[in-house]
Design a binder for these strands. Structure first.
Length: 386
DNA sequence: TTGCCTTTGAAGAAT
DNA sequence: ATTCTTCAAAGGCAA
């Protein structure tokens, strides 16, 4: 499959992807040569345009886009809320990167328990996010506070959850469920309702990655950062931390296999699939992914160069952001990870161990349209299966 | 319960 | 320099 790889090395993106056409006649190929060249030109111009502006912090902010206009309004609300917070001594900062719901939270000591014992929201539990999340119709903070009062599930896990949170669907570049109740740091004791370890989970936070941006990945206690997992990170329910004493080799190896793993950024086609899959499912009444992917593959080839260029540009930004979030990450890091994880899981089952994977803790933010702020909620889920 | 299927593209390893 | 391999997503299905 022909591919050009003339990356500029600056933004780590393969800026000059070529669309490859398979199983097509010679004439078709000739026709595509010029099409590929055109697409290449489009991509190059996109890349140059993007790169020429990539040095500027301001330019990393979202540009006017008809698709984003509604979100721009949200952004405005966010900026206003931010200013109010800062005027009031708040330390929140907006993220210049709009593709991910960054949370700039300086003091997260009780982020995961944002409510006081009486169920009221603590001051630091209130935070803000960039505008990519959809606005919610929340009747008012009091209603949120009432409904968010901690309750208990049948397994005695304390739960703080607002009923509206189920509507939250962040526009993530990675798996949306990264911010769902199934994604969170695990070290939570069901008995005490508190963190099982002082550092529930220390996921790789790039030290020099993005200026002013940190992913807070542990929950509370000794470590200064609290946690909202990046969508590309797949926590596994194991307590891990660089500061913990190292384990014996065999055990260490086993633990390594369970370490959260940073996923690859999605390529252009994957981004296209993510967007188009629901439409194909609806149109073709087919659910089998293999069939759907075949259809999507055909549709991908039938896209115009402009349409494809949109996804290549998205993918390039994905890679750029990913590389900034995880400067030391390599695709090689994940080689064999799938098989190892599967093997580790089956070994656990063979040993007759209950595949209890700890506790997931997830967070959500609810927009309060009354005073244009966001309210942080925390959900704890006991994990016993995959 | 697990792994395969099926697609394209990116990246690293191997030749 | 070219080719090969792996992994990203998704969910049904066979073993």
């Amino acid at each position: 499959m022909p591919q050009l790889n003339g990356g500029d090395g600056d933004d780590l993106g393969a800026n000059d992807e070529l669309i490859a056409f398979k199983d097509e006649g010679e004439q078709e190929e000739k026709r595509n040569v010029s099409a590929e060249r055109d697409l290449d030109d489009v991509k190059s111009s996109l890349v140059n345009e993007s790169e020429s502006s990539s040095d500027s912090e301001a330019d990393r902010r979202p540009k006017p886009d008809p698709d984003l206009e509604s979100r721009a309004r949200h952004s405005q609300l966010f900026e206003e809320a931010l200013r109010r917070q800062q005027d009031g001594g708040g330390l929140f900062q907006p993220s210049p990167y709009v593709g991910y719901p960054f949370f700039m939270i300086p003091d997260l000591g009780n982020l995961c328990s944002p409510y006081l014992t009486n169920g009221a929201l603590t001051t630091s539990a209130r935070t803000y996010l960039p505008f990519q999340w959809p606005l919610l119709d929340v009747p008012g903070r009091s209603a949120i506070r009432d409904s968010a009062t901690p309750t208990h599930l049948s397994n005695n896990m304390p739960v703080v959850q607002h009923p509206h949170m189920t509507h939250l669907h962040p526009l993530l570049s990675y798996s949306p469920e990264a911010f769902s109740p199934q994604r969170a740091s695990p070290g939570f004791s069901p008995d005490t309702g508190m963190s099982r370890t002082p550092h529930a989970a220390c996921y790789p936070v790039s030290p020099g990655g993005m200026p002013g941006v940190q992913w807070f990945l542990s929950t509370s206690g000794a470590h200064p950062q609290s946690s909202i997992p990046h969508p590309a990170i797949v926590p596994t329910g194991q307590d891990e931390c660089d500061l913990c004493p190292s384990l014996p080799d065999a055990q260490q190896e086993k633990e390594d296999e369970k370490k959260p793993h940073i996923k690859k950024p999605l390529n252009a086609f994957m981004l296209y699939m993510r967007e188009e899959r629901p439409k194909v499912v609806a149109q073709c009444k087919v659910k089998e992914s293999a069939t759907i992917n075949q259809i999507l593959g055909q549709r991908w080839h039938s896209l115009s160069k402009e349409e494809q260029a949109k996804y290549y540009e998205l993918a390039r930004k994905e890679r750029l952001l990913h590389s900034k979030l995880y400067p030391g990450w390599s695709a090689r890091d994940n080689y064999g990870k799938k098989k190892k994880r599967k093997r580790a899981k089956s070994e656990t089952l063979l040993e007759g161990k209950t595949p209890f994977r700890g506790t997931r803790e997830s967070t959500c933010l609810i927009h309060d349209r009354v005073d244009h702020t966001f309210i942080h909620c925390c959900v704890l889920t006991k994990l016993t299966s995959r």
